[in-house]
Amino acid sequence: MFLINCPYCGERDQQEFKAGGEAHIERPKQPTELSDDEWAEYLFMRKNIKGVQFERWNHAHGCRKWFNMVRDTSNDEIKAIYKMGEKPPTQ
């Protein structure tokens, strides 16, 4: 059970949160211009990395805010947490 440092509320138990999959996949601005393949790439394809992964999380049973998390999926170490719209940490 993770201890997640919500950027708005502080440290809270994992059970207050909902995982939202891979981060930084932007919804295409002009979906109608895309081919089936390009749209499918956005819609279905996810990396599911073993190792350091950028993810979206939602403080569903708290402030309801979405934020980003950098997590090593192999040992569940949370390396960074940052707000939506903020630049992902490089290291």
């Binding site: 909902k18 939202g20 932007e26 919804r27 979206r56 939602n58 569903a60 309801r64 805010k65 979405w66 939506m84 719209g85």
Partner: peptide
């Protein structure tokens, strides 16, 4: 509600 919040906060802030 969760889905609408998601779009509002992340796609259309």
């Amino acid at each position: 509600l969760g889905k609408l919040e998601d779009y509002l906060q992340t796609e259309w802030p």
